[in-house]
Computed example of a mutant assay.
Amino acid sequence: MVELSFFNILDLLGTSAFAISGALAAMNRRLDLFGIFIIAFVTAIGGGTIRDILIDNTPVTWMENTVYIYLIGVVTIITIIFRTQLDRLKKSLFLFDSIGLGIFTITGVELGIQNDLNPIICITLGAMTGTFGGVIRDILCNEIPVIFRKEIYATASIMGGLAFILLHELYFNQDVIYIITSLTVIIIRLMAVKFKISLPSFYLSEERNPNLDL
């Protein structure tokens, strides 16, 4: 069972948000029922699994607490049932993805701090936890992952991680840190899309054939 602390409640909310975004992405790609569940599952647990392996927190969270598996299953079924209503919300995939990113950034940074890791590593863990599930989702859906495109994604997570570390060093209340961090990530994502802010991209002037000699 999962202890219902504020931290774990946030973790469950982040898992739900990413499961919804994964299920929506799978349905947008017209995958079958099995495919929808697989994409929802890997989106929800992918980043956390990699994080847990890196910090040697094994068995990983979802293997130790099967409530995550049940939660992902129930949330995916609900998403399928209400897919028409969710589809009317044109920004629903983006919204749930942003919520999951904000919350999972918190869990990654917090676990890094609990393991007495360097602040830079904590921020990195936060970004990995928040983004790698989406990377796996996009790869399986045959899309270039959002993290590798111009869209502000990992950058928002990193900024949220920086806010977390700063507030932690200033001895803010832990729950306040969680709320401010998640809002920082979500607001940066929303503002970046609203005002079309993006990182610069670089490309060759001519498309080259990789099979040709340079």
Rank of each mutant, 00 (worst) to 15 (best):
V2K: 12
V2E: 13
V2W: 14
E3M: 11
E3N: 12
L4Y: 15
F6W: 13
F7A: 14
D11S: 15
L12K: 10
L12I: 15
S16A: 15
A17F: 03
A19W: 00
G22L: 02
A23F: 04
A25F: 05
A25Y: 07
A25R: 10
L31Q: 12
L33F: 12
I38L: 15
A40S: 15
T43C: 04
A44E: 05
D52T: 07
I55K: 07
N57E: 14
P59Q: 08
M63F: 15
E64V: 10
N65R: 13
T66W: 11
V67N: 13
V67P: 06
Y70P: 06
I72F: 00
V74D: 04
R83E: 14
L86C: 02
L86W: 08
L86Q: 05
K91G: 06
F94K: 05
F96K: 00
G102S: 02
G102Y: 01
I106W: 05
V109S: 06
V109Q: 05
V109G: 02
I113C: 01
Q114W: 09
Q114M: 14
D116R: 10
L117K: 14
N118F: 07
C122I: 05
L125Q: 08
L125C: 02
G126I: 02
M128P: 03
I136Q: 03
R137V: 01
L140V: 08
C141T: 13
E143P: 07
V146W: 12
V146Q: 13
K150M: 09
E151L: 07
Y153K: 00
S157F: 01
H168S: 15
L170A: 14
T181C: 07
S182K: 06
L183G: 10
I186W: 01
I188F: 06
A192P: 03
K196H: 11
L199H: 12
S201C: 08
R208K: 15
P210M: 08
L212W: 09
L214H: 11
